[in-house]
Design a protein around this nucleic acid. Structure first.
Lengths: 350, 350
DNA sequence: CTGTTAGCGCGTTCAA
DNA sequence: TTGAACGCGCTAACAG
């Protein structure tokens, strides 16, 4: 007999993991198992008396609804996958902190999938999300394999790509307007009176970072300004140090540098200060991107662009809870944050 | 009739979310549903021929085993909960990055629960973990309600407390030996020839941070050294700025400061440099704790203690995969990382 | 408002 | 090796 196997076996002998079930609570409370279920289902009709009995018994037995089982039944897992690499990076971790917080507030549960390492992991991550019948997957880094689009869609899984534009039907693609920011950065350096303008970028820049670079370079072309371009290393503080050192070592030393990320900018500022004895903004103007916590630190006081994090997340959640959303691309303006790493002339740009 | 409802209803009319099931694959491959299940169960016996057919059909239909369902059946969810606050903080995010990476490598899935905000959320987080029949919960910040111990235990959920000692039966309590580190810090400052020694700590320090403080102060008492103690603010860079300013403003300005975290240390160093024109290590020796990425930045070059992260995580995973682990408390030595924020005398301490 | 019944998708027996 | 039957814990639908 299967039916009573569990109850017949001694607890210690059982190989199955024990847990308190609705049936246990029902027995304890002297009601039917369904009444227990109803007590924990918002909007279900149970009399106050039964409800009270159930709650009391549940409390005593330490009962919690098994969401694995209820998800299976209602085909709504309540889980949202966050797929990201380098999650210990300032901007990325801030994004994850905000996202997980807001997801919880919306009653969702977040499953974090770390894809640091090889690119292939993004595909695996997505497959894992599908396995868990995740309601949505929010991809913060890397590109998903388009061949998975159908599988996602046929499992009713929403997809959001942050900071990346990809041909992935049915997804929301959202991020800051990187090109516009690059353009603004150039204008700001020009207005600050910079004569020799440079760009510092990493060699393994992502799509969105390259967009910033393009915006900057294009604007320079339009303005007829030459850009000293230094590209190398990873997107990190260390790269910034090296890029800064290389730039400041030049005979035609730049006096205004746009760094595609704040981490790079911090490295550049430290290279200037520690290795060349130069100070921002007096000797050198520096602009970054992301507005990480360190940008505000007194040793950097970095003028930068704040990612429209709140708006991105708001739109994300709205989209994830929409029934059958259409493919959509959203570009939000990055806010220019004036601090004190750019020479005088604090003229607001537009 | 329930049985065929799903197939009878037009896909568009159905309110249930559609998904590819093992049964669909079985039909497509012309085998029984059980064969499909076996194909995806490691170690099950299926003939190569059936297996091939199943895999092909699964590929075509985009089938993925529903882990919600399989978890329910095998009562092993494969999910591990990570419960943490302030996950955008350097040390915390590094910890989460490492943990999630290693968990994945061990075949587990991580559920991230953000408890920033009010303390009560730790309890909710644990309840949520229980609901999802998480195999283990790793608590990185805050203290769980001991009343939940039974519920955790009766659901077979393992519990790990990192950096906190609490009366929570059945759990693993693990972290660095904070007292010993505090002691080492004092010795290092003395050997560096510091005459006026100070401590900078936040006003809302956690248990483990207070331990560092105690270790430092106790060692000072033993050595008969007076400690200028400045306590205030949150455990943050901003607090470090203020604490540093307060300390350096004193008439008996300290020449050696132990900061209970690296973030505070960075603030103190910036206060010294930006507000008083003092440099480390020439005018001031500073020691931190955590060895965050910024400690290595050239502008700080901070002497600090590295958390034994790898060992903590290793032990964590080992413990989580043990059948019925006993309550255990583990203290691991924090590694003293010499950089250049402490005056000369680089004498390794033991 | 309550209890009975059916089924969510899967893995695991048991008997062939 | 394969298929039939059962149950994991739960909720939705049905009937009273």
């Amino acid at each position: 007999m299967y039916k009573n196997q569990r109850n017949l076996m001694s607890e210690k002998v059982s190989s199955r993991k024990q847990q308190v079930r609705a049936e246990d609570v029902a027995r304890h409370a002297g009601v039917s198992r369904v009444s227990v279920s109803r007590t924990f289902t918002p909007g279900a009709s149970v009399s106050a008396a039964t409800r009270a009995k159930v709650l009391k018994s549940a409390e005593i037995l330490g009962y919690r609804v098994n969401r694995l089982a209820s998800s299976l039944n209602r085909s709504e897992s309540g889980i949202v996958a966050l797929i990201a690499a380098e999650i210990d990076t300032p901007h990325r971790s801030a994004m994850i902190a905000e996202l997980s917080d807001k997801l919880q507030a919306a009653g969702k549960v977040t499953m974090l999938i770390n894809t640091s390492g090889y690119e292939e992991r993004v595909k695996d991550a997505l497959l894992q999300a599908i396995s868990f019948r995740t309601e949505a997957a929010i991809i913060l880094s890397g590109a998903p394999d388009p061949s998975l689009a159908d599988t996602c869609f046929s499992n009713g899984m929403k997809l959001v790509l942050i900071n990346r534009e990809e041909d992935f039907p049915g997804s929301l693609q959202i991020g800051p307007d990187n090109r516009a920011a690059g353009k603004t950065a150039l204008k700001a350096l020009l207005r600050a009176g910079c004569k020799r303008i440079a760009l510092a970028n990493s060699a393994n820049a992502t799509w969105s970072i390259l967009e910033r670079q393009k915006g900057f370079v294009d604007a320079a072309d339009e303005a007829g300004v030459e850009v000293l371009s230094e590209v190398g290393g990873l997107t990190s503080y260390q790269a910034g140090l090296e890029l800064g050192t290389a730039l400041l070592d030049r005979e035609d030393r730049p006096d205004g540098i746009f760094c595609t990320t704040d981490l790079i900018a911090c490295g550049v500022i430290d290279a200037a200060r520690q290795r060349f004895g130069l100070r921002t903004p007096d000797d050198l103007s520096v602009i970054g991107f992301d507005d990480i916590a360190q940008a505000e630190w007194e040793g950097y006081d970095l003028t930068t662009f704040a990612q429209p994090t709140d708006q991105i997340i708001e739109k994300c959640l709205e989209w994830c809870t929409t029934e059958q959303p259409e493919t959509e691309t959203v570009k939000l303006p990055a806010k220019f944050v004036w601090r004190n790493s750019v020479q005088k002339a604090r003229i607001p740009l537009k």
